[in-house]
Computed example of a mutant assay.
Amino acid sequence: MKIKDKHFKVLLDYEQISKRVMELAAAINHDYEGKNPLFIAIMNGAFMFAADLMKHVHIPSEITFIKVNSYQATKSTGNVKELIGLQENIFKRNLIIIEDIVDTGNTISHLLEDFNTLGADSIEIVALLHKPEAVKKKVAIKYQGFSIPNKFVVGYGLDYDGYGRNTRDIFELLE
């Protein structure tokens, strides 16, 4: 598949993704029964993952969205820029951060610091993708979808310069 000036091949198809999303939701349903967690989806990339995950979360819960950015083209800038912030009071809440991908760990580390200072009771991460080889700041991911190689990926909400978010599958960059 071609997106803008780059070529990609399928890394994970929608059937694999769907199956894993249901498994993650089942684990969350079990672990958070009776706890009323607040899900915080990180936009833009996590929008498809968050929507599919929440279809299978059957416990009382809320969801909100924040927008942060640390990527430019196919590389992490290393800087986390908060674009749209959190409006809900998270004091004494159980938070579950919904992230499309954890690679360097910079974005999640930044958010964990911010949320801890606001008095959350607990904070866990559900990430569809994790790139262990790219980690610069180690974070604990309680609910992990897939561990992938340190390659640029697009699709299922992830983008290349704003394009490719609308595919059902996840594609990796062909070098």
Rank of each mutant, 00 (worst) to 15 (best):
Y156T: 00
V153P: 02
H130A: 04
Y156E: 01
I101M: 13
L129R: 01
L112N: 10
I17E: 01
G105I: 08
K6I: 07
A41H: 08
L12V: 12
I101K: 06
V68L: 09
K67Q: 14
E99K: 08
I96G: 03
E113D: 15
F146L: 09
L128Q: 00
G85P: 05
N94W: 03
H56A: 13
D31Y: 03
G34L: 05
I141L: 04
M1G: 05
F8A: 01
A26W: 13
L128H: 00
L118M: 15
K92I: 06
E133V: 08
S61F: 10
D13T: 11
M22G: 12
Y143K: 04
A46F: 04
E33Q: 12
R93T: 05
L128M: 04
Y14T: 10
R20I: 10
R165C: 00
L12G: 05
Y14K: 09
L158C: 00
I66T: 09
A41L: 07
D169A: 09
P132R: 02
S61C: 15
S61T: 09
N166Y: 06
D114H: 12
S70R: 03
A140G: 11
G157F: 00
T74N: 14
F65C: 10
S147A: 09
V154T: 02
E172Y: 12
V154Q: 00
Q72A: 14
A140V: 09
Y160A: 02
V139N: 07
V135G: 04
E15M: 12
M22K: 13
P60C: 05
G157T: 01
N94K: 10
N44W: 02
L38N: 09
L129A: 06
V80Q: 03
N94A: 11
I98K: 00
L12K: 00
P60Y: 02
L118F: 12
I3S: 09
I123L: 11
G119N: 08
F171W: 02
T64W: 04
I59A: 04
Y143L: 09
L95I: 13
K75P: 03
M1A: 09
F171N: 00
T74H: 12
G164N: 02
L24V: 12
M48H: 12
D159E: 05
R93K: 15
G155M: 02
Y143N: 05
I17N: 00
E113H: 14
F146I: 06
K67C: 14
E88F: 10
L128I: 02
T107K: 07
I42G: 03
K9A: 15
K9T: 15
D52Y: 07
A134W: 06
I84T: 13
N89G: 13
P37A: 05
Q72S: 11
F8N: 00
D31M: 08
L112W: 00
A27N: 12
K131C: 14
D114N: 13
I63Q: 03
T74C: 13
K2D: 13
E124M: 11
L112G: 10
K67S: 14
H130Y: 07
I28G: 02
